[in-house]
Design a protein around this nucleic acid. Structure first.
Lengths: 117, 117
DNA sequence: CTTCTATATAGCTTCTGTGCTATATAAATT
DNA sequence: AATTTATATAGCACAGAAGCTATATAGAAG
């Protein structure tokens, strides 16, 4: 759980998430992927490299092409982290119920309960 | 699903993920949270602000303190995105089986099958 | 009303990321 | 061998992140 930095920052870019989405429909070469993006080839190449470094995609060498596909376990660290957070959230909820019950009508100032989806 | 940028970049920082982990054990004020981090108060304050902006934490006003807690739906967008990716990955696997079968022994050059966990 | 405590804002510096153009490499094609 | 195609690397410019110190604000406490 040490490359969460890399994974999260890789995913923090819309171009890169778009590439992952494209790869969801299967393997594609860099040029094929780049076609949908209004960006220079070198810049795009960089994005691909970042995704690869983050372990989110895999590549083969096929002549002059480098077909990319989703890395099967690319999101493993992320999944693990999410699971932890989910559990924490649930625990918090459980506790919150208890706290609310215990507090009764004391209600000091804790009423800003936005839920911003 | 438009603030994924914000959420992912908020999570791309270890200090901020640590704060979320701290909040997993329940509400805490900024100073309480800051105690575990070797960083100036203003810098830390900034991190808290980023988490709030990303919708990952909620805060109350309690006198001079601003207790923070995990936002119940803070990870909703993330969960949704993950669900999509999971499905894509599964689909890819299914397809891969099919493709491999269909290709038979045609095997052009696609044999570097690293799985880098 | 002065002071202390908790937190925020301003302003600055430094580092990193992203994009671009120009160029390199390497396989495919002619 | 020369050219074209796919991709990578170098080097630069600019925008934004993250850290710091100094200062502001706003309740609490005296």
């Amino acid at each position: 759980m040490r490359d969460l930095n890399t994974v999260f920052s890789a995913l923090a870019d819309p171009t890169r998430r778009a590439v992952l989405a494209q790869l969801a429909s299967g393997e594609a070469s860099v040029m094929e992927l780049a076609a949908s993006h209004k960006m220079s080839q070198p810049s795009f190449s960089r994005h691909i490299h970042v995704l690869e470094e983050a372990g989110l995609i895999l590549r083969r060498v096929e002549g002059t092409r480098r077909p990319c596909r989703l890395a099967p376990n690319g999101l493993a660290a992320l999944e693990q982290w999410m699971a932890l957070m989910r559990r924490a959230l649930e625990a918090n909820y459980g506790r919150l119920d208890g706290v609310l019950a215990a507090m009764g009508a004391e209600a000091k100032g804790n009423d800003n309960d936005q839920d911003d989806t």
